[in-house]
Design a protein around this nucleic acid. Sequence first.
RNA 1: CGGGGCGUGGCGCAGCCUGGUAGCGCACCUGCUUUGGGAGCAGGAAGUCGGAGGUUCAAAUCCUCUCGCCCCGACCA
Length: 570
Amino acid sequence: MRLTAYLIPTLREDPAEAEVISHRLMLRAGMIRRVAAGIYSYLPLGYRALRKVEGIIRREMDRAGALEVFLPVLSPAELWRETRRWDAYGKELMRMQDRHGRDFCLGPTHEEIVTDLVRREVKSWRQLPLNLYQIQTKFRDEIRPRFGLMRGREFGMKDAYSFDRDEEGVQKSYATMFETYTRIFEQCGLNFKAVEADSGPIGGSFSHEFMVLAETGEDLLLNCPGCGYAANLEKAEIALPEEQAGAEEHRPVERKETPGQRTVEEVSAFLECGPSQLVKTLLYEADDTVVAVLLRGDHQLNETKLKNYLGAGALGPASPEKIEKVTGGPTGFSGPVGLDGVRIVADEQVRHLVNFVTGANAADTHLVNVNFGRDFAASEWADVKAADAGDPCPRCRAAMEKVRGIEVGHVFKLGTKYSDAMGARYLDENSEEKSIVMGCYGIGTGRTVAAAIEQNHDGDGIIWPVPIAPFEVVLLTLNVREQVLMEASEKLVGELEDRGVDVLWDDRDERPGVKFKDADLIGCPVRVVIGGKSYKRGEGEIRIRRTGEQSAAPLGQLAARVEDLLGQIQ
RNA sequence: CGGGGCGUGGCGCAGCCUGGUAGCGCACCUGCUUUGGGAGCAGGAAGUCGGAGGUUCAAAUCCUCUCGCCCCGACCA
């Protein structure tokens, strides 16, 4: 491809609209342009990279036996009402009406559509298992779109849905997709990790996220360097604390005046004890009942873990009025002692504390030397602390580390949530009617491109992994007014294309410096230079973008050398 | 939705406080020179100063409303 016939509007300066590196580089390299918040156009170069990622996904999905389909973006409300998601999805669902006033939405995901298809067409166990996938544009009216392609309101996604006869079948489908995703992201040149995740309102019993490790990631992960356990912060468990030998003796409870001291910092400073000697009592409202949560003063609550533990539909902090009514004291002075009739959930990490400080359920008063059993009874224990760096791994007790990640893929075991709601059933060998067991599997395509850039760049620009590079090679002809250089270049382009190499030929009448800068920015893995100096020696120059490694080769051998190199570098 | 910031040729910005009719760098077009890491000179084209209303002899500048964009948070697959 001749650059003079192509469209790559590179920018010398960072556009003000972009903060994160992948967004800046995609704008500067002329890959994308913003149309509205969270909505982007792909220019030719950006689209080529996207298509490369899609190609890898198609190849691997097909190989795993999944069948490609193409489902509509526009989706009638009735299907969403069947699963109650028309209401449950909330404002994120892009809604619209047709000319007759009928409700529609732009699909944010396609469980309803695909389940509707399958319930009509699949009746027999002989038709299962089945895995349908598509690469489609999705719409989610995100509260805050950001970071370019990272979180958009309109974005590309590969979504797949597996349909199996039973639990054993969906296990197998899930495992196959897990392996497939691993292969896909490896080919995209990504350093990623599959982590255990909370399955959230999409439902289902089991879920993994594929996370690309990057500073700019929106998700926090806990990672165990010891055994490889990794989980989303929302999900991350913590090993149960070990009982301490030779614990202190229980001292008598004391009531202390703590005027105006509400927060953990204030109280611990006032009473001259560490925050870890405090047990804070958080009052939450879970589906209209108040629950008291006991947590060590220096720990944070993980609301998702609490919500899952309680099995609650809605969960939120209780209002100050409610707290006063339930505890008899104002906020900031709540405690478990004498808290009759309230369900008390104590975090596992406070189980072995002795002689700790709590609120006294009265204004400006705290209790010192409180102990379990003697002073109050916790109704139950649960792991509800938000995991943090240094917490012990639930599998091997090694200290976990906290890292950031970009979620590029997510696999769910759905079970029969959608098939039950929509009546997707089949007849088994014994003529018994059963619900189809489902799984669903997503990959953000544009986000994968962005994540690849986050992980593969330097101060000069993008460094494409070969499999997803929009062009594998950029050829710079340093002076296009010299006929011999042009002839040699054109010949080389032909030779490379004959070998199936994607080559971008910079045939612009620009000074060499401009071409070098643009080539670095665009980031093709291999750069070839045809210039006066080396041409006199009958050579062309080859440079590896990632390493900067340079070499020269006789003009006649250039194409072969380049092809060879592309096979070697990642 | 709460907080913060920003809207001035394609891009990056100055001008605004203290009103006087728009400027700089890059990019773009023409010509000449130049050609191994973002060239030089000369000439040129291009802007409803986000929008509406108001104050004023006069508004990019002051006031009110409004729209859009970015960042933090809350929210959410």
